[in-house]
């Protein structure tokens, strides 16, 4: 589970964490705008947890704690929650790493178009 995932390591290295971005742009919100959508995704996943390989609530939180203390120890919250969730979904084979990488590029292109 703690094996590094290249696509996520690149995100960690670029370090666009909310405290840094908020300071750069003079924004006061304590949490990033995607936080509630992440909360919604975690709740939706917990509902889906009866399916094979999808982590249940406790597994998801245990994996988040373990990853946040090791591979993603340098990230603040909630970035560590988001990246740990991505890591869990890739490590469990729910999302393929290549597919994730491709999707990250496509979404960035879409948002910057």
């Amino acid at each position: 589970m703690t094996e590094r995932i290249e696509a996520l390591q690149e995100i960690v290295q670029r370090n666009q964490v909310w405290p840094r971005m908020a300071a750069k742009w003079g924004v006061e919100n304590p949490v990033p705008p995607w936080k509630t959508s992440l909360d919604g995704m975690c709740d939706a996943l917990d509902h889906a947890a009866c399916d094979e390989n999808i982590p249940n609530f406790k597994e998801r939180r245990d994996e988040e704690d373990a990853l946040s203390a090791t591979v993603y120890a340098d990230l603040p919250y909630p970035e560590n929650q988001l990246v740990s969730l991505a890591h869990s979904l890739v490590a469990r084979g729910i999302i393929d790493e290549a597919e994730l990488k491709q999707r990250l590029t496509a979404i960035r292109e879409r948002l910057q178009a």
């Binding site: 690149e10 971005m21 742009w25 924004v27 990033p32 969730l85 999302i95 990250l104 948002l111």
Partner: peptide, 14 residues
């Protein structure tokens, strides 16, 4: 924040 961050993109992708 007038900049698209990797974390925002990752949340949408997942």
């Amino acid at each position: 924040v007038d900049e698209i961050t990797d974390f925002e993109v990752l949340e949408i992708a997942l």
